[in-house]
């Protein structure tokens, strides 16, 4: 870990000022950044501790506003999250370990970086760590890598579970920088790698996530999150699905689907949703919609199974949810 300075921000404005246009890095619970700094993947010269920012979870226009410094565990434990957005609570408790969930902030979870082994390894080539260096993952161990939206430069996946539920629910992130504030749909926050895999998000240098807003979404109350992984707990997703569906007289009146473990960003399944809306809520249609969503998938040597796995998991999650409809 290279030497760095440390400062604690009193509030969001203080944090943005201290970050000095991106010279300093924001530090939340430290569960990812401290590890990456120790691995020398991240080499910050200054850290601004933003755990003193808002941790509130508040009602806002029928939805919820979650302070960026709220701990993951606190979000999953919150009554309104559990009852109105259960897939979000489920996604959080499916991720990491209890200790990490107690430390990690919502903002930090959103901005966590890929667990691609080649990104972590200083002895390997990685375009995300060093632009233009090349990618050792494409021909290497890529069982855990992306099948959707990857590029010739990068096949890494975004590791968050929480973000998959946020993406399904049309959450927006509240941002602040020296010039002011803005909001952004979370589905627009993370990037696909293209030829700039070093950029995980569209955030400007020094820009800070101050909150996440969940809109009012009635169907979210019966949402589900299913995570498929290599061990029964404490493992990153090979594929995960967050979904909610509303069925009226056997017809899909509304649906939300997002996937984890398959792309450089939490993958909102717009194609599958469009294919399902207004159609019959049958397992067969769910299966076909899932196949349409995965039609553009490209398999690497070790991850072709993810395509079939994602299709199956989407189909089963939707079938189960539709079966629970009153």
């Amino acid at each position: 870990m290279r030497p760095f300075t440390y400062a604690r921000a009193a509030d969001a404005a203080d944090a943005v000022r201290l970050a000095d246009g991106g010279r300093a890095r924001y530090l939340g619970g430290g569960t990812n950044l401290v590890d990456l700094a120790r691995e020398t993947v991240e080499r910050p010269e200054a850290l601004v501790d933003v755990t003193g920012l808002s941790t509130a979870i508040e009602e806002i226009g029928g939805g919820l506003l979650i302070g960026a410094a709220a701990r993951n565990a606190a979000v999953a434990e919150h009554r309104a999250v559990r009852t109105r957005y259960p897939a979000l609570a489920r996604a959080i408790v499916a991720g990491a370990s209890a200790q990490i969930r107690n430390m990690a902030t919502v903002g930090g979870n959103i901005l966590q970086r890929t667990r691609c082994a080649y990104f972590y390894d200083d002895g390997s080539r990685c375009n995300k760590r060093r632009p233009e260096q090349g990618c050792d993952a494409i021909e290497g161990f890529n069982r855990g890598h992306a099948v959707l939206g990857a590029s010739a430069a990068c096949v890494a996946t975004h590791p968050s579970d929480m973000c998959v539920a946020l993406a399904a629910f049309d959450a927006t992130v509240h941002l602040r920088n020296a010039d002011g504030e803005r909001t952004l749909p979370i589905t627009d926050l993370h990037r696909l790698p293209g030829n700039r895999p070093d950029l995980d998000t569209v955030l400007e240098p020094g820009e800070l996530i101050t909150a996440v807003e969940l809109p009012a979404l009635a169907l979210a109350a019966s949402s589900a999150y299913r995570k498929v992984r290599d061990r029964a707990s404490y493992a990153f997703a090979l594929v995960s699905v967050a979904a909610a569906i509303e069925v009226t007289d056997g017809i899909v009146s509304d649906v939300r689907i997002a996937l984890g473990g398959v792309a450089h960003k939490p993958w909102r399944a717009w194609t599958a949703e469009a294919a399902l809306r207004g159609g019959p809520a049958t397992a067969e249609r769910f299966r076909r919609a899932a196949e349409e969503e995965l039609a553009s998938a490209v398999a690497l040597r070790h991850n072709a199974f993810k395509i079939e796995l994602a299709e199956r998991t989407i189909t089963t999650v939707l079938t189960d949810l539709a079966g629970e409809q009153p």
């Binding site: 082994a117 080649y118 390894d121 002895g123 390997s124 050792d136 021909e139 290497g140 161990f141």
Partner: peptide, 8 residues
């Protein structure tokens, strides 16, 4: 990694 013998 069988290309360069590195444990990944």
């Amino acid at each position: 990694d069988e290309r360069h013998g590195r444990i990944m």
